[in-house]
Amino acid sequence: MSNYKKPVPIPSVESKPYWTGLKEGRLLIPKCGECGNFWFPPSLHCPHCNAANFSWEPSSGRGKVFSYVVFHRVYHPAFSEEVPYVVALIELEEGPRLISNLVEIKPDDVQCEMPVSVVFEKIANNMTLPKFRPAPLY
């Protein structure tokens, strides 16, 4: 992993628990203590009701492809061997949408609304990324 050349996320003060959760194999997302809604990306107050009271709860890791694109152009040299690769906007069962990659599927086979589930990809000792693979209907 020492020759990992892709950008490594730089956690913010707000997102630190999210990245810590991933390192432990859990997809933790903020859940409002007042209205019960989830949100992403992490912030200090619930964007649904503006409450400050929230907790980090594990997502089921299940979701669907809300939309996706296929990169043909190399925007960063570390991806030059990967094109064409898929970047998808994943809608988690809990509601929030997040950007990720799809694995174990060819770009031509990807469709909107297809069910996916999270897999954890360790890229460094202290960094794990959430990626998604096709899942059976649930």
Binding site: P9, P41, F71, S100
Partner: peptide, 13 residues
Amino acid sequence: VEHGPEFGFFGPV
């Protein structure tokens, strides 16, 4: 620096 570039997600296109 997070939630995008690590997945190769760059730019307005």
